[in-house]
């Protein structure tokens, strides 16, 4: 059972490695969206510092959504998804594995890029660390909740935009707690509460999301 789980992760990472172009698109999207904001609101350092955490977090949500509509779609098209659904293991293990693989492929690079973007927004060192930490706890939530949306919209026309519509409202708590943690450092009010709440939200997503997206996958494939 554990072997199946790790095989799912290994498989998706391997496939992403074979298609580096697709993978890089989402990362560059993240960088570009964040870089557009100073152009839109002006280069004033204190203003940038105020909006910085929120901007990086919103861009992270969008970047994660961008790559989500292909989470199950490619496997659905070539029939490998059917084969995996027919495997002797619970489907929730499959969806959990795929969500974690999505996080490894798309979430971890964001953690590496985010501090660099934070510097552009004039964030102090401490806040940069907090940005990375909050993204480290928060981005798995994005992958987990996103897998529900990807499963629900599997094979639909305009699935990509639809995923955004379905899932963005569900991301709200992650955005508030995540960006709030960084702001807590900036304003000196501390960010322990935000981090614990973000962690709690992660635990809940970890428990429920794979299960729901397994049901959604069954409904969609039928």
């Amino acid at each position: 059972m554990l072997k199946f789980f790790f095989t799912v992760i290994r498989r998706d990472v391997l496939l992403a490695a074979r298609r580096r172009g697709d993978w890089l698109t989402a990362q560059f999207f993240f960088v570009m969206v964040v870089s557009m904001f100073p152009l839109g609101v002006g280069p004033e350092p204190t203003m940038l510092r105020t909006i910085g955490p929120g901007v990086v977090w919103v861009a992270a949500l969008l970047a994660s959504l961008l790559s989500l509509d292909r989470l199950f779609a490619d496997d659905y098209r070539d029939g490998t998804l059917e084969q995996m659904l027919l495997s002797p293991y619970p489907t929730s293990l499959l969806t959990l594995g795929k969500a974690i693989a999505h996080w490894i492929i798309n979430g971890i690079p964001l953690l590496v890029i985010a501090p660099v973007l934070g510097i552009q927004f004039n964030l102090p060192n401490e806040a940069l660390w907090m940005l990375v930490l909050s993204l480290a706890i928060g981005t798995p939530i994005l992958s987990l909740l996103g897998s529900i949306g990807a499963a629900l919209t599997l094979g639909l026309r305009g699935g990509g935009v639809l995923v955004t519509l379905l899932i963005l409202p569900l991301y709200v708590p992650a955005l508030i707690f995540g960006a709030g943690a960084v702001e807590g450092i900036l304003s000196g009010t501390g960010s322990e509460a935000q981090l614990s709440l973000l962690g709690a939200f992660l635990m809940m997503s970890l428990l429920l999301a794979p299960w729901v997206s397994a049901m959604a996958l069954r409904v969609s494939v039928e």
């Binding site: 529900i148 629900l152 409202p169 569900l170 708590p173 429920l208 729901v212 959604a216 969609s220």
Partner: peptide
């Protein structure tokens, strides 16, 4: 699909 999304929403 609508029902599942609805349930996820109501938990959220």
């Amino acid at each position: 699909a609508g029902a599942l999304l609805n349930l996820v929403g109501v938990i959220n």
